[in-house]
Simulated scan of single mutants.
Amino acid sequence: MASDVVLELVDIEAGYGKAALVLRGLSIQVRRQEVVCLVGPNGAGKSTVLKVASGMLRPRSGQVVLNGTDVTGQGPQQLLRGGLSHVLQGHSVFKEMTVEENIRLGGFSLPDQSVMAERIEFVQSVFPVVAQRWTDTAGLLSGGQQKQVEFGRAMIVQPDVVLLDEPSMGLDPKRTATIFEEVDRMRQNGVAVLIVEQNARRALEMADIGCVLDLGRVFATGPAADLLADPKLSDLYLGGRPSA
């Protein structure tokens, strides 16, 4: 495996309980400082890919490789310590806690307070809302601001790769644009990002690599700009070409 590949899923077959497979021989690579966007119809298996990658769902076969190490079967806490953070779908802030408490909770695995202080300073510099609302109760923040707190909580452990599941869900266009700006800031800070996003066209405009899933398999993958320019893929998976 190439040294710049941070996360790799190899020939993954996965499903829930005794039900039929959701992922069927799926393979995906995410390289350092790269945004890979998963798109496809409902039921294609996009969120299942993230659950397998983060250790929430053990694959029936195949490998999950993180920073060159086979981590198949390891749980979310082990993968977090190995450099992988997962921001779940919807809002997962603890609304009764302050922004500070939410961020510190994300750093529970950091070795000491000096490292915590250093990482807090970094997170506040990347996500200004975190600094501005530091002492406020998280539940008082807007949806977009809460999502930035979630991003900050994921970034405090200095991950190599962050998984994002529908980060713009429930947000208006202005706040959605802000969220994509923050994803780009993650990339600029050296983090690889694997994202599932309902606004597929907008996400591909921001991503480096697009990966189209259909029926649990990779239907097409390549530079995101090429996928956007392909009229067949646009009609099938992106809701048609945008009007002039």
Rank of each mutant, 00 (worst) to 15 (best):
Arg81Met: 09
Pro76Leu: 13
Gly143His: 11
Gly152Pro: 06
Asp11Met: 04
Gln77Lys: 14
Asp214Arg: 08
Ser3Gln: 10
Gly143Thr: 09
Asp165Ala: 09
Ile195Lys: 07
Thr98Ser: 15
Ala117Ser: 11
Arg175Gly: 00
Thr72Lys: 10
Val218Arg: 14
Arg32Val: 09
Phe108Gly: 05
Glu197Gly: 12
Arg217Trp: 07
Arg187Trp: 02
Asp235Glu: 14
Val218Thr: 09
Gln29Ile: 03
Thr221Met: 10
Gly55Lys: 10
Ser142Asp: 08
Arg153Gly: 03
Ser125Arg: 15
Gly43Cys: 10
Glu182Lys: 15
Phe108Leu: 11
Leu238Arg: 07
Leu23Ala: 14
Ala2Lys: 11
Phe151Gln: 01
Ser27His: 06
Asp172Val: 07
Leu233Asp: 01
Gly152His: 13
Gln132Trp: 06
Arg175Val: 12
Pro231Leu: 08
Arg202Asn: 00
Ser114Met: 02
Thr137Asp: 00
Val71Leu: 05
Gly222Val: 07
Cys37Lys: 07
Ala192Lys: 11
Met116Gly: 08
Ile195Asp: 01
Gln89Asp: 05
Phe127His: 07
Ser168Ala: 15
Leu164Met: 13
Gly40Arg: 14
Gly25Ser: 03
Arg201Lys: 07
Ala200His: 04
Arg58Met: 00
Leu80Phe: 04
Asp214Cys: 10
Phe122Arg: 15
Ser27Gly: 10
Val35Asn: 01
